[in-house]
Computed example of a mutant assay.
Amino acid sequence: MRPLIVALLLTLICFDDFKTTFAEDFAYNGEMGPEHWSEHFSMCSGKHQSPINIDLVNVISRTYQIMTFNNFGTKPVSGEMLNNGHTVVVHFEYPENRPTVSGGPLDGKFVFEQLHFHWGDNDTIGSEDRINNVSFPAELHMVFRNDKYSTFAEAAAESNGITVLAYFYKIGENDNESYNEFTELLEEIVTPDTKAKFQEPPTLFQLTEISITQYYTYTGSLTTPPCSEDVTWIDFKTPITISAKQMDRFRHLNTYDNTPMTHNFRPLQPLNDRTVFSSIELTWEEDGNDNDIIKGRSAKPFVDILYGGAVVTKTIDLSNMIVMLLLNLLATTISLN
């Protein structure tokens, strides 16, 4: 019996060492900072890395099918947050089916895995992606895996295996009630490897409560090692509003070296040969005669690629757009004859 006990103790010690090593295998500064990630994780020097700056001048509008958000309003049966030394990671358990997202730029159905956050030491920096080189105080990442794969690790190793729904934050005067319990629980996980459980776990929709039809999308990577590529990014245009007090609670967390966790965002990566697209939302409306009309509303409302970059000042009905294109084609044909 004694040899068995000794073996079990050694196994536990080795496991704890592995857990610590895994949790501390990268940092946001020093010898394990982002400039050194590729020395240990070769994919971090890839050509399609995230985050990026989204330059609105070069964004191209594209029509996508309506995105479908299943079970985003389903209340979890339990929820737990963890300070993993790098960020706050939140896991939810559901009574039956987990939330899924499909449609839009996605090829397939993607299942919710976890969500986590990135932020800075003040309200002028913190988000990972930027819009016209402007940062937001924080950024929420909801991570999903393609349902073709049974585990996140398997999905991350495959093309089209992962998608990230990214939400920016802005500071408002009042507390966001959906974040009251969330930010209060942060005070219980100041030390790395500590956890806290929700009394009333929020739904995914409660954590966002913004327009989900206006977004930018591009192909990138995970923003932490191993920096796996072929990740579909969907950055929603409308920020989530929280108060300065709620935002500041994130900055009270500590990292493994017992310093404040106030800079956990990766530097910008080159866009290289990639294109960032802006969604043109397809919606169905009735015309009063029980007929469905498909309409388009662009997330980039003032520059529409379908008009060759011409400036427009209002949303364009796709049906009208098609008629105008046909009339232009007819006029060109007549002039040639």
Score class of each variant (00 low, 15 high):
residue 300 K to V: 10
residue 134 V to E: 15
residue 150 S to C: 12
residue 90 V to G: 02
residue 36 H to Y: 14
residue 31 E to V: 02
residue 200 E to T: 15
residue 153 A to E: 15
residue 89 V to K: 08
residue 251 R to H: 08
residue 100 T to Q: 08
residue 78 S to C: 00
residue 287 D to K: 06
residue 61 S to M: 13
residue 119 W to N: 05
residue 226 P to H: 08
residue 299 A to M: 05
residue 67 M to Y: 08
residue 138 A to T: 00
residue 295 K to E: 07
residue 263 H to L: 10
residue 100 T to C: 10
residue 267 P to S: 10
residue 322 I to M: 09
residue 273 D to P: 04
residue 55 D to P: 00
residue 261 M to R: 01
residue 53 N to G: 04
residue 11 T to G: 07
residue 17 D to L: 15
residue 117 F to L: 06
residue 289 N to T: 00
residue 2 R to W: 12
residue 256 Y to I: 05
residue 100 T to Y: 01
residue 168 F to S: 00
residue 332 T to N: 14
residue 233 W to V: 04
residue 202 P to C: 05
residue 244 A to F: 04
residue 75 K to V: 11
residue 250 F to A: 04
residue 118 H to D: 03
residue 224 T to Y: 11
residue 238 T to F: 13
residue 35 E to S: 12
residue 146 N to P: 11
residue 169 Y to K: 07
residue 31 E to C: 08
residue 29 N to D: 15
residue 194 T to S: 14
residue 21 T to D: 15
residue 82 L to H: 06
residue 107 D to V: 14
residue 90 V to N: 03
residue 103 G to V: 01
residue 152 F to Q: 07
residue 180 N to R: 15
residue 258 N to K: 12
residue 71 N to R: 11
residue 69 F to L: 08
residue 220 G to F: 01
residue 50 S to P: 02
residue 233 W to Y: 12
residue 180 N to M: 13
residue 269 Q to Y: 08
residue 134 V to I: 14
residue 235 D to E: 14
residue 318 L to G: 06
residue 59 V to R: 09
residue 37 W to L: 02
residue 70 N to E: 14
residue 190 V to E: 11
residue 27 A to K: 14
residue 194 T to A: 11
residue 116 H to L: 00
residue 142 M to R: 05
residue 140 L to F: 11
residue 136 F to V: 00
residue 201 P to Q: 02
residue 250 F to Y: 09
residue 12 L to I: 15
residue 84 N to W: 13
residue 170 K to S: 06
residue 189 I to C: 04
residue 189 I to P: 02
residue 104 G to K: 07
residue 93 E to S: 07
residue 151 T to W: 01
residue 81 M to R: 04
residue 298 S to P: 12
residue 45 S to H: 13
residue 106 L to Y: 10
residue 136 F to P: 00
residue 31 E to Y: 10
residue 71 N to G: 12
residue 279 S to L: 07
residue 288 G to K: 05
residue 147 D to F: 09
residue 33 G to T: 15
residue 25 D to V: 06
residue 4 L to D: 13
residue 244 A to G: 00
residue 271 L to R: 10
residue 204 L to S: 07
residue 276 V to S: 02
residue 145 R to D: 05
residue 266 R to A: 09
residue 71 N to T: 11
residue 117 F to P: 02
residue 140 L to P: 00
residue 55 D to R: 02
residue 226 P to F: 08
residue 111 V to W: 01
residue 158 E to V: 06
residue 172 G to D: 09
residue 262 T to F: 08
residue 220 G to P: 00
residue 67 M to F: 04
residue 284 W to G: 12
residue 20 T to D: 09
residue 107 D to E: 13
residue 216 Y to T: 00
residue 289 N to Y: 11
residue 118 H to K: 09
residue 168 F to K: 08
residue 234 I to P: 00
residue 251 R to I: 01
residue 129 D to A: 09
residue 249 R to F: 02
residue 203 T to A: 01
residue 22 F to T: 04
residue 260 P to E: 12
residue 298 S to Q: 07
residue 211 S to Q: 05
residue 278 S to I: 04
residue 52 I to R: 01
